[in-house]
Design a protein around this nucleic acid. Structure first.
Lengths: 228, 228
DNA sequence: TCATCAAAGTGTATTTTTCACACTAAAATT
DNA sequence: AATTTTAGTGTGAAAAATACACTTTGATGA
């Protein structure tokens, strides 16, 4: 019958969690309480149990280690370099998640000194091969955001067009023309204008919008392709 | 110190190998000699050894099971459904490869009855969750081919513009205007026209071209983005 | 050798999309 | 009442995408 090697790599998952605070794209990192890489920042991660899929493991870790649940999550890449973990051979299936920073109060779970948001433009040193993982995740997000309406996952349920524009500018790292941006986005028919405006802002108050998932599904069925 | 579950999933890899015969997009499948799924067609696959990365394992399997070496290969996705293999828990890191069908004489490796190219429009029943894997690979190829010059990997070193066009039509499943296609492709400056034409064809002979990898790298550095 | 067949190769006009650009309106603050 | 700050809005020019048809060439076979 079948033969396989007696020894097996351990299987783990690491999560790249993106957030947006209105100005900058941020990453959720944990400061490690234990060796290896004690005191160093790293991605939330952990082993995949025998009875769960890698995606279930990633979701569990999001919750256990950062108190985050019910967010956009997608598989990123599987990292399998032999020495990526100094303890033993660990293959890691990395996921990335998109979160509204305002939506969760961060918790520091087991074995972590603190949890914190770090701007991707100024990350601390990271343990393991997490710099590589992050770098791939950022590339992927930059690519994805242009042809899939995932940016909304980083904002609150309701948002102004200016917030949305600031988000795209932060991710794509280049300025966007206000009028052209609004024309294109509104033209797609994916945004519902709400009967509600900003409150108590020292300027003209902007209307809130929300992303119309139903309309998106309908349009997609008809062959519509989102593209920024 | 660290604790992990005593039992670990086995780690394997499966390879989706695309080929193109001038008219249709094809998939390399192996007919299994042993249970489970005896006599059924399936993707070439195998376990990942303790001392090799998943990519190295995929390349080894390409060679051992199909006699294919030195081709374009890229990680596709990691499949981890609990029951995807009836024997035991096996997590599989899937890869996809692009091959010129004329370049290799297929071999049937250990435990396989035969190896064969199957048009993606008429695949046989597949074992395990390989139908899912293939389906994701096809989607990925369709997406990728539009914004990365990977199509060339499916053709011989030298090819005619008509062959290239036929390839894109086969992958994208829609007809392309000859003049516009040539205008765009040649305009990119990625194709070198060779001093050589087709021989013994019962019609006007077409020039051969080759993909200019060096030019592509140069252009990419300057911010060029391939897009069909 | 002449006619036939099949695909190679080539340019222009139209439509669509993208891009650049500047002022008035509204809400809070002083 | 004046100031500050961002919201909201349209047009014209440039670039890109699309639609479209005939002549050339090489082998085949009558």
């Amino acid at each position: 019958m079948y033969h396989y090697e007696y020894e097996r790599p351990a299987l783990a998952t690491d999560c790249v969690i993106f957030g947006f605070d209105g100005a900058e794209l941020k990453l959720l990192l944990l400061q490690r309480e234990k060796a290896p890489f004690r005191d160093t920042w790293a991605l939330p991660g952990g082993f995949v149990y025998m009875h769960e899929t890698t995606e279930a493991a990633a979701k569990r870790i999001l919750l256990e280690k950062a108190g985050i649940r019910n967010v956009f999550i997608e598989q990123l890449y599987t990292f399998s370099e032999i020495d990526r973990d100094p303890r033993e051979r660990i293959v890691s299936v990395a996921y990335f998640a998109l979160v509204s920073t305002t939506q969760f109060r961060l918790i520091a779970g087991r074995d972590t000194i603190q949890a914190g948001w770090h701007p991707i433009s100024a990350l601390p040193q990271l343990g393991f091969d997490h710099r590589n993982i992050v770098s791939l995740a950022v590339d992927r997000l930059r690519g994805k955001v242009r042809y899939q309406p995932v940016g909304f996952e980083l904002l609150d349920e309701k948002f102004t067009l200016s917030q949305l524009q600031a988000l795209y500018e932060a991710i794509l790292q280049n300025p966007v023309d206000k009028r052209n941006f609004r024309k294109k986005l509104l033209g797609m028919g994916l945004l519902k204008q709400l009967d509600e405006k900003e409150q108590n802002v020292p300027r003209k108050a902007a209307f809130y919008y929300s992303f119309d998932k139903k309309a998106y599904k309908e349009l997609t069925k008809k062959g519509f392709h989102f593209e920024l």
